[in-house]
């Protein structure tokens, strides 16, 4: 078995003398994994992503990237809000990561066209963010996250603010994006259904301090279609994860 693309070794995070938010977390992420991270609020799910991206320093332990620092530098981070720059149109928003790498204009344009086509937003590339719906903004954010072709994509409740229909739609789109432009994903969510539908592994964290409470393997093969949501096996697994989540929440 090849080395994990990313491993967490007794990762601990505490803020200013308080109880640790994350306490000695061990986790290996294999190449091609889609790991859903779920847990009650305050379990340090988002903190885990922030530590991974280097937005916040570790208090203890290690996060080891298989390919070293360069793979941390090239990872993609998708926030809960679309975090688009309101003064730039869609195309220029998507191009921004390449602009910062000072890539030539022609390359930026071509890559932006590619990723915008992937998320189906070619037609609105000249619009400004304020002219887009919530779902469209999130698609732009995804396109921007993919433009550097990251090995690893960190998603922090990206669809949490969307209505149920748009959310399901974007779940399916995210999986089909991964077929076309493969990446390993860490996906933080509050929704059990979303976690089961998207991931091949689910990690349940407990709160105060954040510890790894349960792991689930999700046996459904990719590509997955919306029909999976009606599969009894899917519902059964959702129920199991839901129970584990309730356990994790009460075990404080």
């Amino acid at each position: 078995m090849p080395d994990p693309i990313l491993s967490y070794r007794s990762v601990t995070k505490r803020y200013e003398r308080g109880k640790p938010v994350l306490d000695s977390l061990d986790l290996d992420v294999e190449e091609g994994d889609f790991v859903a991270i779920i847990g009650p609020s305050g379990c340090g799910k988002s903190t885990l992503l922030r530590l991974t991206a280097g937005l916040s320093p570790l208090s203890g332990g290690q996060i080891v990237f298989r390919d070293g620092e360069p793979s941390r530098r090239s990872l993609g981070f998708i926030f809960q809000d679309a975090t688009l720059l309101p003064w730039l149109n869609v195309r220029h928003n998507v191009e921004m990561p390449l602009r910062l790498e000072r890539r030539p204009r022609a390359e930026r344009r071509q890559r932006a066209d590619e990723v915008l086509r992937l998320v189906g937003l070619n037609a609105v590339s000249e619009r400004f963010p304020r002219q887009l719906s919530g779902g469209m903004k999130m698609r732009v954010s995804l396109a921007r996250g993919l433009i550097r072709q990251p090995n690893l994509l960190l998603l922090d409740e990206p669809f949490g603010a969307l209505d149920a229909i748009t959310r399901n739609q974007l779940n399916a789109e995210l999986l089909s994006l991964r077929e076309q432009s493969p990446f390993t994903a860490l996906f933080v969510t509050h929704s059990v259904n979303e976690a089961v539908f998207l991931s091949n592994r689910i990690v349940v964290l407990s709160a105060n301090p954040g510890r790894l409470a349960h792991r689930f393997e999700v046996p459904f093969s990719y590509p997955r279609s919306a029909a999976l949501r009606e599969d009894p096996a899917y519902h059964q697994l959702c129920a199991q994860v839901m129970r584990a989540l309730a356990d994790a929440a009460s075990a404080r």
Binding site: A53, G54, L55, R73, F77, F79, M96, L100
Partner: peptide
Amino acid sequence: DRRLRELFRTWHARHWQEVLYLRIP
């Protein structure tokens, strides 16, 4: 916006790039 600054950090923007492309606009 703090989130936008973090976004620029995940892209490893240099300081002058953050000023030019984020703070000034």
